[in-house]
């Protein structure tokens, strides 16, 4: 059976890839050691009987907070979507290629 409370370097490498962290091999070794420690201290969660318990997404129930479908007619004149970046071209944001 899989031990959920252990993380190996391969898994840390996989996570580094999907979360775009560019970790070095040294960092991966360091993090997997730290995290194994942490996970070991989390293992006690297995003791808790959760049968029939609902997942609490929020501390209090938060329901049906909606917006009416009205489009803002006027834009704030000061609003410039491109003001926070140098990577732009014309009215477009500029970003990296896909492949």
């Amino acid at each position: 059976m899989k031990d959920y409370w252990k993380i190996d370097e391969d898994l840390v490498r996989h996570i580094s890839l999907i979360s775009k962290l560019n970790l070095t091999n040294e960092e991966m070794t360091g993090y997997s050691k730290d995290l194994n420690d942490v996970l070991e201290s989390f293992r006690i969660l297995e003791e808790v009987d959760i049968t029939g318990v609902d997942a609490a997404f929020h501390p209090l129930s938060v329901e049906n907070a909606f917006r009416e479908d009205t489009a803002s007619k006027e834009k704030d004149n000061a609003w410039d979507p491109l003001s926070a970046t140098e990577n732009k071209e014309g009215d477009y944001y500029k970003g990296p290629k896909i492949i």
Binding site: E89, G90, D91, Y92, Y93, K94, G95, P96, K97, I98, I99
Partner: peptide
């Protein structure tokens, strides 16, 4: 598959 960069709208 082979662009130089991407523009986003």
């Amino acid at each position: 598959t082979n662009s130089e960069y991407t523009l986003m709208d």
